[in-house]
Simulated scan of single mutants.
Amino acid sequence: MEIIGELINTSRKLISEAVKKKDGQYIRNIAKLQQESGATYIDVNCGTFMQNEVETMEWLVDNVLQGCNLPLCIDSPNPLALDAGLGKSKNGRTMINSIK
């Protein structure tokens, strides 16, 4: 069974605020918490940052990977953001959650 931690999503107020402030420690803590709670994948979604989704995805992936050692689930219908997230993801088998 696979369990996807879905908390790192910029539609969530505290995640959005952390991204705006570039609070990487907060993102790393959330990733670690989800791993400790039994997640087998960490979902990364920054779709509410459409103007700079590629850069935001790269920043989020970097911080998530510093906080845990799980494979990621890259969540975006934007092919450029998907590519950016896939390019940074190095923890095992990466999953894609959305496509056009």
Rank of each mutant, 00 (worst) to 15 (best):
M57Y: 07
V61G: 03
A81T: 03
V64I: 13
L82D: 02
S98F: 11
N69F: 09
T94S: 14
L80I: 03
T94L: 04
I96N: 10
G67N: 09
L80H: 14
V61A: 02
E53L: 00
I99D: 00
L86I: 06
G85M: 00
S76C: 05
N63S: 08
G85F: 04
A84G: 01
N97L: 14
A81L: 01
L80K: 15
I74L: 01
D62H: 07
E53D: 13
V61S: 06
L80R: 15
D62A: 07
N52Q: 12
S76Y: 08
D62M: 04
L70P: 06
K88F: 03
N78E: 11
S98D: 13
N91G: 01
M95N: 09
W59A: 02
Q66W: 13
I74C: 03
N78Y: 10
L70H: 07
W59K: 04
N78G: 09
T56N: 00
V64K: 05
E58P: 05
E58I: 09
Q66G: 01
P71I: 03
D83M: 11
V61K: 05
N52K: 08
V54T: 14
D83N: 13
E58W: 03
L82V: 10
V61P: 06
C73S: 15
G92S: 03
L60P: 04
K90M: 03
N97P: 13
N91F: 05
L65A: 13
L65D: 08
V54G: 07
D83K: 15
P71Q: 08
P79Q: 07
S76P: 08
I99W: 00
D75I: 05
E55H: 01
S76M: 07
D83Y: 12
P77H: 11
Q51A: 10
E53Q: 14
N63V: 04
L86A: 04
L70E: 05
R93L: 14
E58A: 09
S76L: 05
L80W: 11
G67M: 01
L60I: 15
Q51I: 08
E53S: 05
